[in-house]
Structures are given as structure tokens and as C-alpha cells.
Design a binder for these strands. Structure first.
Lengths: 345, 345
DNA sequence: TATTGGCACTCTTCACAGTAGAGTGCTATG
DNA sequence: CATAGCACTCTACTGTGAAGAGTGCCAATA
């Protein structure tokens, strides 16, 4: 509660919530009309002056209403997250579940649908990253002869998704040899997480001069190549209704978001900030990461695939988005996604 | 040349090109200043009145300059496509090639990069569809035992891309049986296009009661399932610089494009119009397909993957986009893509 | 001492009017 | 047939003034 007493706190929240609802500078009279604090506008005025002094709100110009500052939003969001008595409309919960249920089979589609759903409920940009490749475990590896100098390699992951690639061989191998490679790889790396595999391959390759077994060396090279293809960090977004919202009447906000979408690297940089152990996290004002995103905020949470890997979901919207409504939505979506994925195991 | 004589034609083109350049209603005086026709404004005025009569241009209000109508644009584009003396900046050709060269390996990335490139050069929405799955030929099929009731099926296509999926088996098969299935499928469908495979599977399944060979029936079922997964029509887009362009100062145009992106179905409906045998095609005013896209146009062309399959690339932008510049860009991009794909075979 | 009503003041927003300018159509003329 | 001239139209811009929302301060009050 820091430097604010309960009443001041309440009024700050009233101002911020009003501003979020109306998108208009909030004056003292406005506050008394919308909330029944049993206080006169004059009193509110005094408190507002104090809140301005403390940097929570500000006036766009002399004798205008007050608008929350970044600090104000941060404080507001903090109290929201602390209380966490955020309730949700039953209908929304239901709709949410329905949207994600029944497409467990295809992770890609599920991720896609999730981003659309987030976007649909928020009217802003929905972002979803797939479960981090590095966390996924390898279940089974197979290398099959294809042509004389090409082999088809297949990775099956813990969640039964499959990745594969044709790899070039520098000499002719028999299927028998390939089976030996396969065998070795499965024994070494079956059930191991990709990041672990990476480390082990690097270590073993460094020792390889001692072992001197050509086939095993080759196996490791194959493995290295296979894993390297897992680095791509796909990232889905949706901007479904963003264009409808009056919020975005200011064209520059749309431009800012579009600019963000353009550059996946920026996005990843943004998501790198997310702590996977916590629940919902809110980042108000993204300018410390991307200068042009000064007036944008991000609400994120993490989910797991029911195994070991976790991914990130969230939304990006204007700083003055409706946190009260959106925090539970992101929270719920993350939980629903985790549930759906766990069940499909 | 229809109802217009050469001089009138020239002036119509001057007006449209000026409007595209300046985005401002074009008056008679303006035309004489920007082009040296050796005619006075008064003469131009008479011709303009005639052009308005014919429906090629219109006045936003009494005594304003003229603006092209949809009909005007169509006529303009037709003459552009007929002449086809459209030249391109060497630097752009070079840049274009560089962007697409060297990533032949990964079709997905190539498509992605192409859409970004189109978007980059046009500042509008770039669209690229992958080579039509139905046109692709099947090179090799394999079914591998995975667990007692699951098998891993692998399709290798003519272009060496690989698709796979885990399929459920209703009883336990030995690898020997699966090999037999594999064998049968390869003999039947190796080198055949997917659409052809589809037909044949349907036909053979209808005759299957006669053959009565359980394994073959199962093979066909497997094949059917495998192919059905090929139906997804992925579609990449980019909107890289669109937000920078002054054209889009009108927020509604951005909204229209965003709305289009939202709905892949609409997009596919749009692209269904494209004739794969022709070169560059231009669709002015997309309202007959999607009402909200009245003020948008599409410039498209097709490419092939060096084998039998062809895909579509193009851009969608405001009706008053710079066709003169963008038609060659789309044309060139399609050709570059075809070239890059053919070389990587 | 905290709260409140009253009051003068500030700043934006909106409507309205007036003007400059670009462009037109028409007509008379070379 | 092309053109110069002219009266006319409509927009875009500018400035002004009034309405309104809101403030800060001060004195009165519980």
C-alpha cells in the first residue's frame, strides 16, 4: 500500500478505471458521479492534486481532467494482481474452452486457434509461442536409407509430434549401418530433453577423437544436424478485431503494433522478459524494450504442454487497455491450454 | 483502343498516373504543368469532360479536379499489361534475386521470405500460397511400425519435401505386413500427382470388395488418410511497410486489409479467381468478391515449383496503387521464385 | 483539522463566417 | 478545332467567439 492510504488508493483506482472505460481525461466531478464515495468534487480535487504530486496521474493541460501516468498504471495493475479476486463471465470461460477443445491433435492449429482466441476476446494482438523446443524430450529417433547418398531422419518427441528431414551422407551407408546409428542414438538420447541432448552431443563430439568409432561420430553429427533444425522459434499472432476498436482510432497505435509484428526478433526479445515460473505478468509501457512501443502494454502468462516444455501466451495492446478484464482472460486461456494439452497426452 | 483516340488515351493516362503519384484530384492546369502535351488547360478541360462522360474519371464535387473511376483504373491497367514495356530498376531486380536466393532448402522459409519481399517492395500486403498440394507428385511412401498399434507414415514428394503423421492401427501389424503395404502403395502411386492418387484411391476402394485383400484395403485406407492431411492451404502474408505509407493515412484502408487477413477463407476465395495459365493479372476493386474491399486491388501472378505444382503470389493494396511499378515487381518475383525452385531440384 | 461550497480563471472544443485558391463550364474569337 | 477570358462553384483553411468542463484557492463549516 506504500504511501497511499486506503481512500486515496480507491480514488486512484476509480480514476484509472474510469479513464480506461471512457478514454477521456477524468475530472473531479466525473469521479463523484460515477462512484459514490460520499465525497464532494472539491475533496476529490485535493486528493487528485496529491496523486499528481506523487506521479500517479497527470494533466494533459492546465485545468483539464487527469490521466494515469505509466507509474499509475503499474500501481493499478499491481493491486489488481495482488487481489486476484478477478472474476470472469461464465459464458466467456465456456466459449474459451470450446474454442480450444477438440483440436488437440494438431499443436500448430491449437496454437493458431489460441492466438485467434486471445485476439478475439481482447480485440488486441494475441501472441502465442509454441512449447520451447529445448524443453521437449526426444522419444525416438530413426534414420532410414532413402537413396544412396541420402537418408531420411525422423525425430519423435514426447508429445508424439514428429519432425524429419532428408540429410546428405558423405558416403554410401547400408541400412544395417544406419540401424546401428539409430540404435546408438536411441540408447543415448531417448527420453532426454533437447537442450540436454545438445550438451551431450557437444561433449561427446569433443571426446570423439578418443573413441574413434566412425559410425558413432557420424551418429553424433547426424544428431547435431537434426537438432539444429529445431531452433526456429515460430510465433503466432492474431489481430482479429483490433481494427474495430475505437481505441485504435489513433492510427499511430495500429502502426506501432504492426511494426512490432513485422519483426519477430523484437517480439522474442519482448517475450524473453517473461518469467515462466510466475502466473500472469503485466508489462506496462514497453519502451524499455522497444522505444516505439511506449504506449503499449503486454499481459502474458505461460502454459505447459503437459510434459516438460512450456510456452508463452499473451496479448499486446494500448497501455490503457482493460486490465481488469484481460488479466483473467489471459490467465484462463493459459490454464485452458495447459489442460487441453495435458489431456491429449 | 476502343472508343478513345490516341490523344485522349494519353491524357487519361496522364491523369491517372498523376493521381496515383499525388493522391489529389487532378485539374486541367495540373496536367499541362506535369506533361507537355502542347495543349492549353482549356483543351484539356474539354477532353476531361468527354472522359467523364465515358465514365473513366469523375469529380468528387462540382468544380474539383478529376479522380479515376474503377473503370478508369481497369482501362489503365489493361493498357499497361498490353504494352508490357514495363522496365525495372536493375537494383531492384538484383535485390529481389538476392533475397530469394540461397534459401532453396526450406520451402516454408522461401514462401515466407517471398511474402516479406513483396510486402517490402510494395509497402502493401504480400500474399504467397505454397504450390498446390494437389499438383504435387508423390515420390515415395513408407510406413514404419512405431508402437504395437501405431505406425509412422511418411510421404516424400517430388521436390524432396517430407510430410508425415502417426496413424492408429486397428490391430497389430508386423513390420513385414507394413512393408507389404508400403510396397503396394509405392508401386501404385509412386510418381503420381496427389489429385490423381485421390481419384485412384476412391476408385480402387469402390472395387475393393472384389479384390478382398485385407492388406491392400488397409493400404488404401492409410493412403486416404495420409492424403487428406494435405488439404490445408497455408498462406503467408506480410504487411511490412504498409504502416509507413502515407496512402494508408486513411485508417479505413488499413482496417479493410486487416479484415481480409483475418479470414483466410476470404483470401482463398479471392485467389480462386486467379488463372494459373496467364502471366500477371490485376483485379481492380475487389468488391465483387468481398464487399468491404471496394477500394482495394490485387496484382497477382503464378509460379511453379519446377515440377508440376504451381502456387500464387501477389499483393493487395489500395486501388490507387502504383501499378506501373508494382506489376513488374510481381511479375519478376514470380519468375525469380520459379527459377530458384527449379534450380534447387 | 478535514471537508465543502463558491468563485474566478484556464484551456479545449465546436460552430460559424469569411477568404483564398483551385478548378470548372461556357462563350467568343483566332 | 484550339484557346483565352470570365463568371461561377466548392473546398480548405483561418480566426473568432461562446459553451463547457475542470481547476485552484479561499473562506466557511462540522
Amino acid at each position: 500500500m506504500s504511501e497511499l492510504n486506503e481512500r486515496t488508493e480507491k480514488i486512484l483506482r476509480a480514476i484509472i478505471q474510469s479513464y480506461i472505460d471512457l478514454n477521456v481525461p477524468i475530472g473531479s466531478y466525473m469521479v463523484t458521479r460515477r462512484f459514490s464515495f460520499g465525497l464532494s468534487p472539491a475533496t476529490i480535487r485535493n486528493i487528485m492534486a496529491a496523486l499528481e504530486e506523487l506521479g500517479y496521474i497527470t494533466q494533459p493541460y492546465t485545468s483539464a481532467g487527469r490521466v494515469p501516468t505509466e507509474r499509475g498504471y503499474k500501481h493499478y495493475v499491481d493491486t489488481l494482481l495482488k487481489e486476484y479476486s478477478l472474476s470472469m463471465n461464465k459464458a466467456i470461460i465456456h466459449e474459451l474452452f470450446n474454442r480450444l477443445h477438440g483440436i488437440e491433435i494438431d499443436l500448430q492449429r491449437l496454437i493458431n486457434e489460441t492466438s485467434k482466441t486471445l485476439s478475439f476476446f481482447s480485440s488486441y494482438l494475441g501472441i502465442v509461442t509454441p512449447p520451447r523446443a529445448e524443453d521437449r524430450t526426444l522419444k525416438h529417433i530413426r534414420v532410414i536409407k532413402y537413396t544412396s547418398n541420402k537418408a531420411l531422419s525422423i525425430l519423435i518427441f514426447g508429445d508424439d509430434t514428429v519432425k524429419n528431414r532428408l540429410i546428405d551422407l558423405e558416403r554410401v551407408y547400408t541400412q544395417r549401418e544406419l540401424d546401428k546409428i539409430t540404435n546408438y542414438l536411441n540408447i543415448s538420447f531417448g527420453g532426454v530433453s533437447l537442450s540436454e541432448v545438445k550438451d551431450r552431443v557437444a561433449y561427446q563430439l569433443s571426446r570423439e577423437s578418443i573413441i574413434c568409432d566412425r559410425l558413432i561420430a557420424k551418429s553424433l553429427m547426424v544428431c547435431k544436424e537434426l537438432i539444429s533444425m529445431e531452433n526456429e522459434d515460430i510465433l503466432m499472432e492474431g489481430l482479429t478485431g483490433a481494427s474495430n476498436l475505437p481505441d485504435f482510432a489513433d492510427i499511430n497505435e495500429i502502426k506501432d503494433i504492426l511494426k512490432a509484428i513485422e519483426d519477430k526478433h523484437l517480439m522474442l526479445k519482448l517475450l524473453a522478459q517473461v518469467d515462466s515460473s510466475e502466473g500472469v505478468q503485466v508489462f506496462v509501457g514497453l519502451e524499455n524494450i522497444i522505444p516505439s512501443m511506449k504506449k503499449l502494454s503486454m499481459v502474458v502468462s505461460t502454459y505447459t504442454d503437459g510434459m516438460d516444455a512450456h510456452g508463452t501466451i499473451g496479448i499486446i495492446g494500448p497501455t490503457r487497455m482493460n486490465y481488469k478484464e484481460l488479466i483473467p482472460i489471459v490467465d484462463r486461456t493459459a490454464k485452458t491450454l495447459t489442460k487441453v494439452l495435458s489431456e491429449s497426452q
